[in-house]
Design a protein around this nucleic acid. Structure first.
Lengths: 254, 254
DNA sequence: GAGTGGTCTAGACCACGTC
DNA sequence: ACGTGGTCTAGACCACTCA
């Protein structure tokens, strides 16, 4: 793996990667300082930093100003995307499906909600079957687990469908937006999830308190009523603390 | 966005990010060279490189040795994960479901297959219900679209189930491994997909020809027969050219 | 050959955290 | 106060691409 022709900083990264894997530096422990590694590998500080950056972008370590480089702890929660829209389950619980998912894993969820009316971006407009610039109602959630930022979830509705309804209020809706909209005649019968990953932009990195170099898993869910798309929800989850799960099979539900 | 206190390289990244968004530098076009940007921003080369690296890790641009920094083209294919194990569809087509998915998008798929017998990693062992170190048969595929590396797909089977069968041959199985195993009594009735994203390690970056900084979408699918798990498939897809799609709802199939 | 990015050195000063 | 990472400079030489 550490071939002779690899640049020095890659050799350094490979050596440290191996030692982390072998437990020489376990989860939560501290790596030698940059200046120590300069001596150990006979490299300049910039070269050492290149090598460390490699491991940062792989999500293995993160720098902590004034403390050193720390090895990432693995602390991943599962978000079960295939059952999170199950009406019966949600109605019986009376709480947000995500809240329930997290509670079942023994953690304490919380969230903030902000509502605004915006012009649809081209991407959202296409998914909702609107013209670019048509108004959409946006519910932006910032979600926390045990007080730590965990994920963002932004839902977009055609403004013409939901204005002057409870959906436009910046508060949780006890029975859920989906059930509420169903009572208004927009029963969602089908969902399409598109999953990808991006590197966070500065705002996202700040909101979610992600270390530089940790990718965000992005799930865009479009909900369809019989009449067409009625909702797009974009969820962004740092991959160092989230796994998206889909259960598929004969006993499948939506 | 570009606050006064931002470091110089962030200001530089923000300025270029905006210009790329505004179309000053469109998809496929070339950014000014590092040395030109040194003059334009009055910064040293290392600082310019820090700013450019920021945009590289966001997936906006990529460096091309000897040519300059190029703005990424968007050229994304959809991989429909919720229908890819549909027996009927596959059997009727007589080809790999992925092959069909890509062909439907007007592209030319191809793949290489290598088969080996290995000791199960702890992760795979847990998912297959084996002990760590038990033997697993591994089918590693490297998939191409229009001749370009596109994704890797590694399938793991308990060796005790598949040894001395066609699954252990390094060739495509016309009716598909799933149908073949069903004929051997292991009908897969349920799947669990875990989706996350990672930054590529050196080997993955090489296999998939990904630019540094582009995350990989990783889908781990565990297939269950009535008797328990019989297969784990790990698919790694560079996010600059793939979207994973799940269709959920009343007409759901496995 | 000229221009590009890739790697690397050897410094400097600042900002943050802990003791 | 001290050690840590964060930012930045001003050079150098190598490797690749294209005309």
């Amino acid at each position: 793996m550490t071939t002779r022709s690899d640049p020095l900083y890659e050799q350094m990264a490979a050596a440290l990667r191996e030692q982390i894997g072998a437990g020489v530096y376990g989860p939560g422990s501290k790596l030698p300082s940059e200046r120590t590694l300069m001596e150990r590998f006979g490299a300049s500080r910039n070269t050492v930093r290149l090598g460390l950056k490699r491991l940062v972008t792989e999500g293995l370590i993160f720098p902590s100003h004034g403390q050193g480089y720390l090895v990432h702890r693995q602390d991943v929660l599962v978000y079960n995307a295939s059952r999170s829209e199950n009406h019966d389950r949600r109605v019986s619980a009376g709480v947000d499906a995500w809240v329930q998912d997290i509670q079942e894993q023994g953690r304490t969820p919380s969230q903030t909600i902000a509502v605004s009316i915006e012009k649809a971006s081209p991407d959202i407009a296409v998914k909702l079957g609107l013209e670019a610039g048509d108004l959409v109602l946006v519910r932006r959630r910032l979600r926390f687990v045990d007080g730590q930022p965990w994920s963002t979830e932004d839902s977009y509705y055609p403004n013409s469908l939901v204005k002057n309804t409870l959906v436009a209020e910046p508060a949780d809706i006890p029975e859920g937006v989906i059930a509420y909209m169903a009572s208004m005649g927009y029963t969602q019968v089908r969902y399409v999830d598109d999953v990808t990953a991006v590197m966070p932009n500065p705002k996202q990195a700040d909101d979610l308190a992600v270390e530089p170099g940790v990718p965000l898993l992005v799930r865009s869910r479009t909900g369809y009523a019989e009449s067409g798309p009625v909702r797009v929800t974009v969820t962004a989850m740092p991959t160092d603390r989230n796994v998206l799960r889909y259960e598929l099979g004969t006993r499948q539900n939506g």
